[in-house]
């Protein structure tokens, strides 16, 4: 309940300041436009659009999801949070906020891919939905803890993608693989290994982040 209250505060604050939403929306539009201009009238393969989808998602996440903690640090309200909530509440509240942002962002990106790219055809929609949900959860957890780590650094903008790359790489590679399977029409049972990799990634990242947050949060 406390975490939900923190999420509510962040969401209302976001609606008034548009720190993250504007950055994400602009990034998505610009990136997809650049891809479309660079492709021109060429016909690209299905696998390539699947790969491009996750590349756009990765870089969009880099541009907007760090705001959860960076905006608090920039406004000087980090100490206020220290004084009103326990570290576990703060982590959970920020995670819920990032989960909502990731889902909104990725729905928008996937929807745009469906309508703009002819070759983006998913044959097994159930498998893609599994990958989409588990992938979004993984991205939200990883970006929340990385945002907490970098919020106190002086060069936040550079550090965020640099730190995120090795942490998100196994997740993105598995997601690209699963999207490929979904495009081929493979069944869920045939792709169980990759799905379990995603589940393990999410569980490990959540447990490690939850345990480590206390140390990261306190100077």
């Amino acid at each position: 309940m406390k975490a939900y209250s923190l999420f509510k505060k962040d969401w209302q604050s976001e609606l008034r300041t548009r720190y993250a939403i504007n950055a994400l929306a602009m990034f998505i539009l610009v990136t997809i436009s650049v891809i479309m201009f660079s492709i021109g009238s060429e016909k690209i393969t299905e696998y390539l659009t699947g790969g491009l989808l996750w590349v756009v998602i990765f870089f969009s996440a880099m541009s907007g999801l760090s705001r959860a903690f960076v905006s608090e640090e920039e406004r000087g309200t980090t100490m206020t949070l220290h004084l009103i909530a326990s570290p576990s509440t703060i982590f959970s509240g920020k995670l819920i906020f990032n989960l909502l942002l990731v889902f909104l962002m990725n729905f928008a990106i996937t929807f745009l891919f469906f309508i703009l790219f002819e070759s983006f055809v998913i044959k097994n929609f159930l498998l893609f939905t599994f990958a989409f949900i588990l992938g979004n959860i993984g991205i939200a957890i990883s970006s929340t803890i990385i945002a907490a780590i970098i919020s106190k650094a002086s060069s936040k903008g550079t550090l965020y993608p640099v730190l995120s790359f090795p942490i998100l790489l196994p997740l993105i590679l598995t997601l690209i693989e699963l999207t490929k399977f979904a495009m081929d029409g493979n069944s869920v049972s045939d792709s169980m290994v990759e799905i379990l990799v995603l589940v393990c990634y999410d569980v490990i990242m959540f447990t490690a982040s939850y345990l480590l947050f206390d140390f990261i949060w306190k100077e």
Partner: peptide
């Protein structure tokens, strides 16, 4: 110590 500029005093206190 800084409070949230984008909220009113009472909204800050309620949050």
């Amino acid at each position: 110590l800084f409070l949230y500029d984008e909220f009113s005093a009472e909204e800050n206190l309620v949050h």
